[in-house]
């Protein structure tokens, strides 16, 4: 294993800047690399991303492997896999991290299978086993009913990292690094899947991930009209948004884009109010990072109360108007 050195991170940019998940991975990657006394490499692929490169160094990278080409408009799996393979052949890293994002979920397994190595997806904690000098990757399994520590026994040890689980480093403007160009002919013959169109369905207003307060409804809400009441309640606060459990999305009461949970959005607001949600592990996984969870449910034994700081055992249709009126009165005071 001595031939394997350093950590490679497949970075992501958003609007030409370094995406927050990449800063988080840099924090985790830096800590791992320092432990080994080795380097952190970041792969950046896109167009017009020079300012993200500089940012990468200030957040802890030693080397950036860069493909900055006007032809690269979007994520393209076949091209991105080739970039990763090229970097890994040169750098022979001990570990390889990606974000558990749209891109990382799709790209990670492709790279792992190409490199003949194992990957742990949706990893929430990274530590080092001091004896074996290997990374231990923790992830939730069985929909969040249990958690497992994994050892990938082949190199590079790969993981996709769940957003908001690792802390970035303080920005250090004095840090510099080396840029290594990725030399790939962008040849259309390697491209097997072609993006025809991209549609944004996100509703206007406050994004779920950015909200300070989230009010989520579940199957117990019973229909779209009930969700309007949750919207009205959210409207009383400065920075609140409405979320939902999967059944509410499946029933098309609300957009699937506001699903909270293991296969929806992972959120960590200051306040999470769950209304008519039972608290299945697959849902709770998506909101357990919230500072305070409050539940309104008519069933006292609903598991959601086990993760809630405050609970109201009640029919929401009766309770919510009274709650909303009181909130309005208190806020206006």
């Amino acid at each position: 294993m001595d031939i394997y050195r350093g950590i490679v991170i497949f970075g992501e940019t958003a609007d030409g800047k370094l995406a927050s998940i990449t800063r988080e991975m840099l924090g985790a990657g830096r800590r791992l690399a320092d432990n080994f006394g080795e380097e952190v490499h970041v792969i950046l692929v896109g167009r017009g991303i020079q300012s993200a490169v500089d940012e990468t160094f200030t957040y802890g990278a030693d080397k950036v492997h860069l493909l900055d080409n006007p032809k690269v408009k979007e994520y393209q799996p076949d091209l991105f896999v080739q970039c990763a393979i090229q970097v890994c052949e040169k750098a022979k890293p001990k570990a390889f991290l990606l974000g558990h994002t749209d891109m990382g979920q799709d790209l990670g397994p492709r790279i792992a299978f190409r490199l003949n190595t194992a990957l742990v997806t949706d990893c929430i904690d990274l530590t080092i086993d001091l004896d074996t000098k290997r990374c231990i990757m923790a992830k939730q399994v069985y929909g969040g009913k249990a958690q497992a520590d994994f050892d990938c026994e082949t190199y590079p040890q790969m993981a996709t990292i769940r957003p908001k689980t690792m802390s970035p480093l303080e920005k250090d403007e004095t840090r510099k690094g080396e840029i290594i160009p990725i030399t790939i002919d962008i040849d259309d013959s390697i491209i097997k899947t072609r993006l025809i169109d991209k549609v944004n369905e996100e509703s206007h207003g406050i994004k779920l991930e950015d909200a300070d307060i989230i009010i989520s409804g579940g199957r117990g809400i019973g229909g779209p009209e009930g969700f309007q009441q949750l919207e009205d309640l959210a409207g009383l606060f400065k920075n609140a948004a409405v979320g939902a459990s999967r059944p509410a999305c499946d029933e098309e009461w609300v957009s699937t884009k506001i699903q909270v949970g293991i296969t929806g959005k992972i959120v960590a607001p200051r306040v999470y109010i769950a209304v008519g949600i039972s608290g299945a592990s697959q849902h709770v996984t998506g909101c357990s990072g919230s500072e305070t969870i409050i539940a309104i449910n008519k069933d006292k034994t609903a598991p959601i109360f086990k993760v809630s700081k405050f609970g109201l055992v009640a029919d929401w249709e009766t309770a919510l108007p009274a709650f909303a009126n009181k909130v309005k009165e208190l806020i206006n005071d």
């Binding site: 190595t117 194992a118 990957l119 742990v120 231990i136 399994v141 009913k145 249990a146 958690q147 497992a148 520590d149 994994f150 050892d151 990938c152 026994e153 082949t154 357990s288 969870i293 539940a295 006292k300 109360f305 086990k306 993760v307 809630s308 700081k309 405050f310 609970g311 109201l312 055992v313």
Partner: peptide, 20 residues
């Protein structure tokens, strides 16, 4: 297999719910 589970556990998330 290439990935091995070293340890499986159920993290305890103890929150005392205050029922209003």
């Amino acid at each position: 297999r290439r990935a091995k589970i070293l340890r499986l556990y159920q993290p305890v998330r103890e929150v005392e719910c205050e029922f209003i």
